[in-house]
Every structure is written in C-alpha cells, then in structure tokens.
C-alpha cells in the first residue's frame, strides 16, 4: 500500500477516482495512482465534452488499453467546464506516469458541494487500499 501516492489535498472514491477543489464550486477529477498502476498502458481516453451534464456516479469518461476498456465514474454531479484533451489526445500514457498532475481528466462545475464532501479523505482511501491488500 505504501507503494501508491495518495496526496493529502484531494478526495477519493471507492472506484479509484480523485477530485480536487479548485474553488468556486469547480472540481478537477482524475484517476488515482493505484488505478493508473493497475489499468495497464493507456492507449486512449474518451473524454466528456464541455457543457455535458454528468450525474454523480454515471460514467464520465472511458479509459482504454490494448485489452480493456474501463469506465471512469463521475463523482460530482454537474456540468463539464474543461477537459484535458490537449494533452491526453496526443499522449494518453501521461495518465500512467502522472495521474495527479498532467494526467487529469476534466473539470466540473458542481450542482452542489455535497458530492465532494461525501468523498473519502486521504486517510479513508489509504485504509481502502490497505484492505485491498495490494
């Protein structure tokens, strides 16, 4: 478990997504280091479009590898305001190498701040990783 980076300033989901509070009810989301290390070499990311309305827990985007296609669940209901296509369309592998930095997925304007608050803290997520025993 100690092998995975879990930054302090983010909140997490059970399905290994992270969210970062950007202020003004805006949040940036991505997948965690744990997910990035397990998924394999990312070949493509299907990002949402700006202005898409996404509910909490519906698939927000899809990450593909040679042999898999994984839904990434949207943890905060709202409207997509920015997506990271400029980087990820050309270099999807950045998700593997820098999942919390340049490998972010999209930014969402939340309907309510409650969704973010309901996510796991670093300590809670670390506990989950420990339980996974991996």
């Amino acid at each position: 478990m100690a092998n995975y980076i879990v930054p302090n300033d983010l909140r997490y989901t059970k399905t290994h997504e992270w969210a970062k509070d950007l202020g003004g009810n805006k949040f940036r989301v991505g997948i965690t280091d744990y997910a990035a290390k397990h998924i394999g070499d990312v070949t493509y990311v299907e990002l949402p479009h700006i202005d898409d309305e996404l509910d909490k827990d519906e698939p927000g985007c899809v990450i593909e590898t040679v042999k898999s296609s994984e839904d990434v669940y949207n943890s905060i209901g709202g409207t997509v305001v920015l997506e990271n296509g400029d980087i990820l369309n050309e270099n999807p592998e950045i998700i593997n190498s820098d999942p919390y930095g340049e490998g972010w997925l999209y930014e969402i304007k939340a309907k309510s701040a409650d969704d973010f608050k309901a996510l796991m803290s670093r300590a809670e997520y670390e506990k989950l990783l420990e339980e996974l025993g991996d």
Binding site: T43, Y44, E64, T65, V66, K67, S68, S69
Partner: peptide
C-alpha cells in the same frame, strides 16, 4: 483498437 469490440466491451 480492439477495446471497441465485443470480446472486450
């Protein structure tokens, strides 16, 4: 681009 196809998706 097999990730589109039935055996994976």
């Amino acid at each position: 681009l097999s990730a589109r196809e039935q055996h994976i998706k």
